[in-house]
Amino acid sequence: MSIVMINIFLVTMMVVIAVMVLRTRRLFAAIVMTGAYSLISAAMFVNLDAVDVAFTEAAVGAGISTVLLLAAMARLPAEEKPVKRNQIGPMIIVAIVGILLVTAVVALPPFGAPDSPVHTHVGPRYIAESYSKLHIPNAVTTVLASYRGFDTLGETIVIFAAGLGVVLLLAGHTKTAPAPHQPAVKTVKAKTKTAPKSQKASKKKAGAKKTGKRGAKKGGAS
């Protein structure tokens, strides 16, 4: 009973925070509330006995991504622009997706049902063998690193690719700053305080080093 009460409290909090994130126009408040949302979902996962997931959610969702979003926000205006466009189209799409999701949830087997496909396929074998054969008490680790090692390799490569993509996209932005891009930057407005200054500074530097060094660096990074 108490667990149900806790769940109701957590879900209510999540809905309230989600609505607040949507309502606010201040990016700082929105980011901090997103972090709080992640922390509450972490508590939710603990309640569902998914401690590993909760751990990740608290560290990544509430910790790192909040910091990264704040760092990105420092380059943006503090307030979101009010939306003026007609929003009926998006509303219809959201409503359709919402209805589909709710029907899908209704069709799912009940929570924790022992005869659901998750608990009748390979799951029991993993749980039974994890300790008796591999002598590792945490079945999550054996599934993640051994039984499903190939998937985890894929995940690691995805993270690596994401890091590489960010490096290639963001690094050297100030260095190259080519002429055709400048009007585009200006239309975004000088609200990004550092942009004009840094571009000027980088232009001086870029002239001499641009071609040779950039080329060499790109080669090294990829």
Binding site: L68, A74, F160, G172, H173, T174, A195, A201, K205
Partner: peptide, 21 residues
């Protein structure tokens, strides 16, 4: 990767950071 992301976002547009990218 997490550190590289932080480097990339936090020093984006900072010309001093260029040499160390």
């Amino acid at each position: 990767v997490m550190m590289v992301l932080f480097f990339a976002f936090a020093s984006y547009g900072d010309p001093k950071a260029d040499e160390e990218r």
